[in-house]
Design a protein around this nucleic acid. Structure first.
Lengths: 199, 199
DNA sequence: GCAATAATGTAGTCGATGACAACAATGCTG
DNA sequence: CAGCATTGTTGTCATCGACTACATTATTGC
């Protein structure tokens, strides 16, 4: 099964894997379809059968990224036990970790979302990832820890906080050493700002 | 002064202007040095005299961007009168407005900062822009509104919040209609989370 | 003033790229 | 097993960024 067959049989997945590696190591800008084809051992026209466009490849990467991000967030939340604040902290840390490890991928994910043309699949994947945050908020409200206002609204504030921390890290404004402290500060701020009974 | 001289006399500035326009309208990815030269009416090799590299042009754009952002933030803060919370709100709104109007430029600004190689000028311009936020924090602490902890730390939390809101807008997760509400919510959260005397 | 020299623009070229088309090999289905 | 759909291959084109050699204009030192 290791011989060179005319029909690769697995090209799409292999291309995505290799592309993700390149994006992680050198950024999306440096991703070349022809180089990708070379690395995978296939002719320069082959990728076109699976991705009509360079952008289509990037969109697929973004969609995979959302799926993985969602899984990691959910796993972090679930692995943190039942306590609301613990789950919140663990999820935030997981998000920032993803943003640090896969900065270029996250950029792709966010860049792609605003183009409405690219089929709802990307949007769906994104929504599924963000639903973790929404569920967290609802848990906090059910337990009476958070103000009972529109979960969407309060969720956006939380989301913005965490995403902002991720952006600061990605931009190099915050060093790795300060990262944990910043996440803790941001969550502490969020909690103190959303506590039920807090004028 | 409108005749075609061999020496343009103003090329660098004109290139930057036109490039900024293109970046705003079509993103940094679509910026082509040759097309730029064509639009400005100059040969394809001319830009190279002013920017050794495509990246150098982008860096210069980013630097200009920071200068403009800093000016807009400062002007917003100063135009809001002496009251701390009013200044805070005005500055946040100004930041998000910039991020909305010049999304691609802001992306450039953030992308460029992590590469330490590009001379301290970019870094300096960025620091000058962010100093507005720091001064705001210090004002809040002087007036006793904010906790007297390290201004850098609390400033990062604020910066992350606002930057996160901007990111959500850029990504299309938040519609223009929800924008003002979200900014208000984020600032309210920040204030409640940083109020002096708030356990 | 003016000659040497620096700064700035032009023209030509190279290798790489993404998109496309024509063709070939393979898999699938009836 | 024949015909058709998939999936790869090869060749081509326009464009791009980078580089070089050269031309023109500014500036500077005498």
């Amino acid at each position: 099964m290791s011989e060179r067959r005319y029909h690769h049989g697995n090209l799409r997945a292999v291309l995505l894997d290799e592309a993700e590696r390149t994006v992680r190591e050198r950024g999306a800008q440096d991703l070349s379809l022809r180089e990708l084809a070379r690395q995978v051992g296939v002719s320069h026209g082959a990728p076109r059968r699976h991705f009509s466009d360079r952008q289509a490849l990037l969109d697929a990467l973004a969609e995979n990224g959302f799926a993985r991000l969602g899984a990691e967030l959910r796993s972090a939340a679930d692995g943190a036990g039942p306590d609301f604040e613990a789950r919140l902290r663990a999820t935030a840390v997981a998000y920032v970790r993803f943003a640090t490890r896969d900065a270029a991928l996250l950029e792709l994910m966010f860049a792609g979302k605003k183009e409405q043309a690219h089929s709802g699949q990307l949007h769906e994947a994104a929504d599924r990832a963000f639903s973790v945050i929404l569920e967290l908020i609802e848990q906090g409200q059910t337990e009476g820890v958070l103000e009972p206002v529109d979960p969407e609204r309060i969720g956006l504030v939380l989301f913005a906080s965490v995403q902002g921390v991720a952006a600061l890290v990605r931009a190099g404004i915050v060093e790795a050493g300060q990262l944990d402290e910043l996440v803790a500060d941001a969550i502490a701020h969020f909690l103190r700002g959303s506590l039920a009974g807090n004028k």
